[in-house]
Design a protein around this nucleic acid. Structure first.
Length: 534
RNA sequence: GAGCUCGUAGCUCAGUAGGUAGAGCAACGCCCUUUUAAGGCGUGGGUCCUGGGUUCGAAUCCCAGCGAGCUCACCA
């Protein structure tokens, strides 16, 4: 527990102070304090009241909070209490609180919790302040607080010791308050539209519904391995088969992948399904949802992310093929492709050959490596659909700062989506991008069990070719489809990424309370510390 | 997984032509009855991330490791 001798000796000092406090007739760890107001309530109620008004009609309050600053001045002194993310100054003077009360004040430390009662007034400098008449000790901080002006700045410590970050950096607190508002707004949006909130298994025998590597765990009594889910998708569609026409789930997904500013191994996903809707209906719904949430949370659809001003109420739509042409770098890649180039295996390969040869001569390492790698994978038995999707991600994703719906995806990378009636190489699917990354993914659900079985088998073939993220066969899901899934649209939205956009957070770790961190070395030594001390 | 950057007091940070470590906050003692990053006087506090190496001498230079951040890769 202790990081140093400094902390150990401070802890001892604080224990001695606690003993002194008990001698004053205060409990060291009382279990209750009856406050008349929260600090935010006091601020809201009297922030605008003048000194004269407060003097004329005396307002008595009792509030509790954590001491964030102490300014003692001999036989009087100030302290700043913090509660509910807001602060309120208190003024303690010997002749108002008495010998015992003032003795207690002098035994207080930064970080302690106290309760006070007294009346409101304004100081000479105009600050709203509680003139304390009684002081109640509530709990002691046995460890030193971070530096009061900068707060806890070390990023690693902020993540590992979020409990300190939250009360020292109020900006951090605000992010998580907003996160809660996002979830609340989403539930409101779907509840108002007749969706049922459901919970489906986090531990699954087949990790399906997405292309990702799962975490494996084990059930002892059943003696079987289970996967932490990578998506709830297949279960939610089973529910639509079961007659829940509109369902949504907000819960964690787990993907055994690397971490980055946009990826945490466990992340929160909203998924929703609507019977009798197709992907066009979902595009409209998505635009409404994101704008609604933005207004509920921030009061505006405008947000700033990575220095870009983004309007979450203004959307553009492009097909994947249009986006590739739009963001094609003729300076590095040569002539733009034509729609006909995306037609089949031969034409896509020809386009990639042409481009790879062009960048090779340019000696543009990044483009050369990327394009030629996509070409090589296609040459070695990959699907042209996958190649097209890879080209899209390479060229377009980073440029999609303003809200953009990219629609019509290759069938090869969409094993659960319904094909376009007139063009079976492409499916009725879209993803939407904001701030340069993917936020959501939606499609008209494939509900033909025969076609679904065929798609799973194609995925198994990819698996055999070494793609360990290809979908597994899920016979029970196919069976569910065989009972009849109505035409259905479904969508998944990454909540963490949406919160990043709405709070201007550059890293996903700033919007997750306890992001996954590597195990800290020396942790064992710290645990030992408290034992040997106590 | 790769590259770059970082790791100094509890916290925020200084500190290299290589000479044995400093400030502010916090802590401790004293003064101060309207301060607010309060102020004044004084005191204590360090495995300079860890382990090797070079050197008469390393916080500083070199190597390896650990942890973190960023970028890339992976990741619909």
């Amino acid at each position: 527990m202790f990081d140093s001798e400094f902390e150990r000796s401070l802890f001892d000092l604080r224990r001695a102070k606690l003993a002194e406090i008990e001698k004053l007739g205060q409990a060291a760890y009382p279990n209750q304090f009856a406050a008349s107001h929260t600090i935010p309530a006091v601020r809201q109620g009297w922030d605008q009241s003048s000194a004269e008004a407060l003097e004329a009609g005396r307002v008595t309050v009792s509030v509790a909070g954590r001491i964030m600053a102490i300014r003692a001045q001999g036989k009087a002194g100030f302290a700043t209490l913090q509660q509910g993310g807001q602060r309120l100054q208190i003024y303690v003077r010997l002749d108002a609180v008495g010998e015992q009360g003032f003795a207690l004040y002098k035994l207080l430390d930064l970080g302690d919790h106290i309760g006070v009662s007294g009346y409101l007034f304004r100081t000479r400098t105009g600050e709203l302040t509680v003139h304390v008449e009684t002081l109640t000790f509530l709990a002691k901080a046995m460890l030193a607080l971070p530096e009061k002006f900068h707060g806890l700045a070390d990023v690693e410590l902020r993540y590992r010791q979020r409990y300190v970050d939250l009360f020292t950096n109020l900006d951090s607190r605000e992010v998580f308050v907003k996160r809660a508002k996002v979830l609340k707004a989403m539930r409101q949006f779907f509840d108002e539209r007749g969706y049922l909130e459901v919970e489906t298994p986090m531990m699954q025998q087949i990790a399906g519904g997405a292309a990702a590597r799962p975490f494996v765990t084990h059930h002892n009594v059943l003696d079987q391995d289970l996967f932490l889910r990578i998506a709830p998708e297949l279960y939610l569609k089973r529910l639509v088969v079961g007659g829940f026409d509109r369902v949504y789930e907000i819960n964690r997904n787990f993907r055994n992948e690397g971490v980055s500013t946009q990826h945490n191994p466990e992340f929160t996903m909203l998924e929703f399904y609507q019977a009798y809707a197709n992907y066009h209906d979902l595009m409209k719904l998505t635009e409404e949802l994101i704008a609604f949430v933005a207004r509920e949370v921030n009061g505006t659809t405008l947000t700033t992310f990575n220095d870009a001003e983004i309007d979450l109420g203004k959307w553009q739509r492009l097909t994947m093929r249009e986006a590739i042409v739009e963001f094609w770098r003729t300076d590095h890649l040569g002539p733009k492709p034509q729609m006909i180039d995306f037609a089949d295996h031969t034409s896509v390969l020809a386009m990639l050959d042409r481009t790879c040869a062009h960048v090779g001569s340019e000696e543009r390492l990044f483009w050369s490596v990327s394009f030629c790698a996509i070409r090589d994978r296609l040459n070695q038995g990959g699907t042209h659909g996958k190649a097209v999707a890879e080209v899209f991600e390479l060229l377009a994703e980073r440029h999609l700062i303003q809200p953009t719906i990219i629609y019509e995806f290759p069938t090869a990378v969409s094993p659960l989506s319904k094909q376009k009636p007139d063009d079976p190489d492409w499916v009725e699917r879209f993803e939407f991008y904001i701030g340069g990354f993917e936020v959501g993914n939606a499609f008209s659900e494939l509900n033909d069990p025969v076609e679904q079985h065929k798609r799973f088998e194609q995925q198994l073939t990819e698996r055999e070719h070494g793609d360990d993220e290809a979908h597994q066969m899920d016979e029970d899901y196919v069976r569910a489809l065989a009972y009849g899934l109505p035409p259905t649209g479904g969508e998944g939205i990454g909540i963490d990424r949406l919160v990043m956009l709405l709070t201007g957070s550059k890293s996903i770790r700033d919007v997750i309370l306890f992001p996954l961190m590597r195990k800290e070395q020396g942790q064992g030594k710290r645990d030992e510390g408290l034992e040997s001390k106590a």
